[in-house]
Amino acid sequence: MTTSEPGLQDPCTAPHFATSALITIDVQQDFLSEAPYGVPGTTEILPALRRTVSAFRAAGRPVVHVVRLYEEGGGNADLVRRRLLKSGVRIAAPGSPGSQPADGIVPEGAPALDPELLLSGRPQRLGPYDHAVFKPRWGAFYRTCLEDLLRELGVDTLVFAGCNLPNCPRASIVQASERDFRVALVRDAVSQVTDSALTELAGIGVHLIEADALEGLLTEPVQAGWACH
């Protein structure tokens, strides 16, 4: 996909890649395909996701890794998860290996996730362009610092990728749209994709792109044109 495609010319929804940030959702060891409670298809999207994060860093654009940290007993989890977590199952437990980002997603030499910092509602810096943010529910904006962080970074466009489109990425995309962010989805870098879901997201102004197109999109000069009011 290139910016010459008709959908990208809508001045009210067209992504501004020069002022964009990448949002990765729940790309953690315990959610990979092979994990006991993992999400099928998530390990398989890692190559495209690694290309995606690399393209954003190469362009000097922010990358925000939104993560889950389920406390013992599941008190900070969605209701549908609490019965499982109350049974003693540990998934993305704070400080555990399973809570850490998947290999190759954060910068080389990045610190481990800091559960105390993240659970307090503050972002964690993982590298020159990378940050982590904890979310307690499906959507990345619910009771989090994400919107404040993005506004501080001067971002008006969000590009989403990560784990399990029907749940957390979809909820986060809707929340982003409600906050008037321009939104794109890297469809080959998100798991559990269906044609119907992509059609529905396109219907609310989400632009669908491929990982291999990002490098060109992120380095294109800003296009002059009439603004949306």
Score class of each variant (00 low, 15 high):
residue 87 S to H: 15
residue 52 T to Q: 08
residue 19 T to A: 14
residue 62 P to F: 01
residue 116 E to V: 05
residue 115 P to I: 00
residue 41 G to H: 13
residue 84 L to V: 00
residue 30 D to E: 01
residue 44 E to Y: 12
residue 47 P to V: 07
residue 60 G to T: 02
residue 59 A to C: 00
residue 42 T to W: 14
residue 34 E to D: 15
residue 148 D to H: 00
residue 133 V to P: 02
residue 53 V to W: 10
residue 23 I to P: 06
residue 65 H to Y: 11
residue 105 I to W: 05
residue 125 R to I: 00
residue 141 F to H: 11
residue 105 I to P: 06
residue 128 P to S: 01
residue 141 F to L: 13
residue 37 Y to A: 12
residue 21 A to M: 05
residue 100 Q to C: 03
residue 156 D to L: 09
residue 77 A to N: 15
residue 103 D to L: 07
residue 83 R to C: 08
residue 52 T to N: 09
residue 99 S to I: 03
residue 76 N to C: 08
residue 150 L to Q: 07
residue 53 V to R: 14
residue 35 A to E: 02
residue 63 V to I: 10
residue 97 P to W: 06
residue 107 P to V: 01
residue 27 V to F: 04
residue 115 P to Y: 08
residue 134 F to G: 10
residue 137 R to E: 12
residue 26 D to L: 04
residue 141 F to K: 02
residue 152 E to Q: 07
residue 25 I to C: 13
residue 62 P to A: 01
residue 35 A to Y: 02
residue 130 D to W: 00
residue 80 V to F: 15
residue 136 P to G: 12
residue 107 P to I: 03
residue 139 G to S: 15
residue 131 H to F: 09
residue 141 F to Q: 05
residue 62 P to M: 04
residue 65 H to Q: 13
residue 112 A to C: 09
residue 70 Y to M: 11
residue 55 A to V: 10
residue 93 A to Q: 12
residue 85 L to M: 10
residue 139 G to E: 12
residue 36 P to R: 10
residue 48 A to H: 14
residue 36 P to L: 08
residue 68 R to L: 10
residue 143 R to Q: 15
residue 141 F to A: 08
residue 62 P to K: 00
residue 110 A to W: 03
residue 91 I to E: 12
residue 159 V to F: 08
residue 155 V to G: 02
residue 50 R to V: 02
residue 125 R to T: 00
residue 60 G to W: 01
residue 36 P to S: 04
residue 135 K to Y: 06
residue 109 G to P: 02
residue 144 T to S: 11
residue 109 G to F: 01
residue 122 R to S: 11
residue 77 A to G: 14
residue 59 A to W: 03
residue 48 A to P: 13
